[in-house]
Design a protein around this nucleic acid. Structure first.
Lengths: 138, 138
DNA sequence: CATGGCGGTACCCATTTCGTAACCACGGCA
DNA sequence: TGCCGTGGTTACGAAATGGGTACCGCCATG
């Protein structure tokens, strides 16, 4: 996402800051957006949720989430590992088995995810209704 | 919890369900993903936050968030309006002015957003460190 | 010997997202 | 007379995202 440097305000100060609730938001280096980009992916949050109960191996995850392709599973796990949400440990068994588990950071994110999931379940109907109402008079 | 009998029922019924924390997740119609798709956009959550303190007009929003283009501002506002997060009210003044405000649904989402924002601010450094550590041995 | 599970990688393609630029009607201002 | 602000829409592209398919070495089993 870090492409397309705009020039307007950058030329003056070098920083682009939007003040929203009295809180300055650095547009170019926004923590919220940084996190959102990572866990906002199609499978990422589901993956963290899947590992909440304990470590799982690659193939176990694939069976648990039947719709994910091998490629996306690998990529999602790499992304989450890179950002410190989960550990990847290789056991040098006969066929080397790989186990994925949540880090402390990953665990600390679970409550956040729960709040989000609960709200979604509670308000999904309202959103769907709003959507159809909006599309109706088209 | 997870024995072998999970995906059997899905094959029969034509539904794709992943059982994650004992909770079935309908992959094709997942409320969480539905919400995530909406507010996961680049500007959407920032927009909701911007309107938390009260209604604002189109141009006010544009000035508040200097980096957003006119096109994305329009589109973001439409998307959020469509899903019921905000109201669009037109006042027939001399140059017709348009005001955007949060709906009850939009307001109810603010705490969720706050939890997310707080966690992000708290853990951004850890994530950045994990990222550079991961990229280093490349 | 062939097949299947394991844990991936490489290549290519479709869709979505985001952004730039141009244009629109309307009125005020100098 | 041209320019600015208000609140948009449209056309056009670049880039990211998501995914399909094939392939890899390794080992065990039949």
């Amino acid at each position: 996402m870090g492409t397309a440097m705009n020039k307007a305000t950058a030329a003056v100060k070098g920083e682009r800051v939007a003040v929203i609730c009295g809180v300055p938001f650095d547009i170019d280096n926004c923590p919220v957006r940084d996190v959102m980009d990572n866990i906002g992916g199609k499978w990422n949050s589901l993956m963290i949720l899947s590992l909440a109960d304990g470590p799982l191996r690659f193939s176990q995850l694939r069976r648990l989430i039947p719709d994910i392709s091998q490629r996306m599973l690998t990529q999602t796990l790499r992304d989450l590992q890179r950002d410190g949400y989960l550990n990847r440990t290789v056991y040098p068994t006969q066929p080397p088995s790989v186990e994925y588990s949540l880090t402390d950071l990953g665990h600390s994110f679970l409550p956040v995810l729960k709040v989000f999931v609960d709200w979604s379940l509670e308000n999904h109907d309202a959103i769907r209704k709003a959507r159809t109402a909006f599309d109706a008079p088209a």
